[in-house]
């Protein structure tokens, strides 16, 4: 027989572990009905009269449940069961990586809820409520523009997460300066210094997200070590975006990273991407001399036609 579906199904949220009873629309308790889950008939053991009983539901029991009248196969009831959990306390983080323009707050849930959640964030500065403009990407993030600088009044950010099964919230209170943390320096480059077996020249750029390095200069922290050792060496640089390492072990490959901090406030950035470099090393002399001798010998016994510019020609200093 053809099953007739004309009822709009609604969504029913239930907690994991709950006992769920579904009534077959307006059908009496003792009416003959058939229940399906995602189109598959449910056996009578789950029925109490025309009621469907689901004990201690789990996530796998989410789905579309339908009830049809016994003889006419008319759809009498349909629902989308969504099994999930209420939200746990969300993890909230606020940071200013573009001081003094503003700061952003981002959040996540420590564990999934398996059902849709909605987030609401409020930012209070003293008595003033500030707008947190949602970023398109990444999703769970919004940013606030500073209306005031150098304020001693703390910021209070409250994030509330709500879903059909419950609600939770987190509040952060912080000073303007405390959350200032630049992004790592960019374009880090390390190069050997010709004829200097113990030097490496390192240069980098201010993070592009830092809006005004001239008025709000950054200082830097450089760390470097040869790959063969675990112990880092550090140097702090209060201005400029380059440094020459002068105590490198000759011939050893080095790993180098840089971090940044506002000169006066806030905390250090994460370390930059690591770069590798090996100090300049002199060409091994004994190999060079042998090659030169062989070259000269060949030149003397070769027919004239074969001699070309720079081919073993000492005046050209050509050494290959």
């Amino acid at each position: 027989a053809q099953r007739h579906s004309q009822q709009d199904s609604h969504i029913q949220y239930e907690r994991v572990g709950a006992d769920v009873t579904m009534k077959c629309g307006s059908m009496d308790w003792d009416a003959a009905v058939t229940w399906t889950a995602n189109g598959t008939d449910i056996d009578d053991s789950h029925l109490n009269g025309s009621y469907l009983i689901l004990k201690n539901v789990d996530l796998t029991q989410s789905g579309q449940y339908s009830c049809y009248e016994g003889s006419s196969w008319h759809l009498k009831y349909q629902t989308n069961l969504r099994v999930g959990v209420p939200p746990k306390e969300p993890v909230l983080m606020c940071r200013s990586n573009n001081y003094p323009k503003g700061f952003y707050c981002s959040w996540h849930l420590p564990s999934p809820t398996y059902i849709p959640n909605s987030f609401n964030i409020s930012v209070i500065h003293g008595t003033r409520e500030m707008v947190c403009e949602k970023d398109i990407f990444p999703k769970n993030r919004c940013h606030i523009r500073y209306l005031q600088l150098f304020s001693t009044v703390k910021y209070k950010v409250t994030l509330t997460v709500t879903n059909a099964l419950g609600k939770n919230s987190t509040t952060l209170t912080f000073d303007e300066f405390a959350i200032v943390k630049p992004d790592p320096p960019e374009s880090v480059v390390a190069k050997p210094v010709p004829n200097n077996p113990r030097r490496l020249e390192v240069s980098w750029q201010n993070p592009s997200s830092w809006p005004d390095p001239e008025s709000f200069p950054l200082k830097f922290f450089l760390r470097y070590r040869p790959l063969i050792l675990d112990q880092w060496q550090h140097v702090e640089l209060s201005d400029g975006t380059s440094h020459t390492i002068t105590d490198a072990y000759a011939g050893k490959e080095y790993i180098i990273q840089v971090a940044a901090k506002d000169n006066d406030i806030g905390t250090w950035s994460d370390w930059s991407v690591a770069v590798h470099a090996t100090p300049w090393t002199e060409e091994p002399k004994h190999l060079t001399t042998e090659i030169q001798i062989i070259g000269e010998t060949l030149t003397q016994h070769k027919p004239l036609a074969l001699r070309g510019p720079g081919y073993g020609d000492p005046s050209a200093g050509g050494v290959w």
Binding site: S215, F216, D264
Partner: peptide, 15 residues
């Protein structure tokens, strides 16, 4: 806070 602000102000002035 003023001390930090003054540093920034003087940098603006120096500019």
């Amino acid at each position: 806070q003023w001390a930090v602000r003054s540093v920034r102000d003087l940098r603006q002035l120096a500019k």
